[in-house]
Computed example of a mutant assay.
Amino acid sequence: MTMKTTKSGATERKATESPSRLIDARIEELGDWRGEMLSRLRSVIKEADPDIVEEWKWRGVPVWYHDGMICTGETYKSIVKMTFAKGAALKDPSRLFNSSLDGNTRRAIDFHEGQTIDEDALKALIRAAITLNTSKS
């Protein structure tokens, strides 16, 4: 994997690398609970939809697609944020959404260190997002 370090110390990856490899590298680069959380969320996404397409956008954000954008996996200092592109249109009976609740389009789930993932509820939410996308395509 080819990476260079910028003046700020951040790493930049070549655009020629596959999105999956870039996501792998990001998980490894984090090297803490955030990398573990992002890796677990990625696994849940792939379990929910084996046909999901991974992309690498906006200088370092994993994005998952199926007939349109499903969600992103952003990492910050104290959270891993999973933002659903059309989250406001999804039913959330398990009340997973806990962030970006005021918008008309997106909804997000902020995961904190040590937090467990309700995998069944998250898979249901991912599948609902896919159903929404496929119903409009």
Rank of each mutant, 00 (worst) to 15 (best):
H112A: 15
R13A: 07
D118T: 09
L125D: 15
A85V: 11
D32C: 06
G35D: 10
A89E: 06
K7D: 02
P62K: 02
V53T: 13
I52Q: 02
D118K: 03
W64T: 04
T11A: 05
F97A: 13
D102H: 05
I27G: 02
E36N: 12
F111S: 03
A124T: 07
G9N: 08
R13C: 04
N104R: 14
I45Y: 06
K86H: 15
E12Q: 14
A108F: 02
D67P: 00
R26H: 08
L90C: 09
A129M: 11
S39N: 15
A10L: 05
K81Y: 00
S78Y: 05
S94T: 10
D110A: 09
G73F: 02
M1A: 15
K136E: 12
T131R: 14
D51P: 01
K81I: 00
N98M: 05
K91Y: 02
D32Y: 09
R42T: 11
R34Q: 05
T6N: 12
L132S: 04
T83N: 07
V61D: 00
E17F: 14
K77Q: 13
T72E: 02
E54W: 11
K4Y: 12
G60C: 06
S94N: 13
E28G: 05
I70Y: 08
T134L: 09
I70A: 01
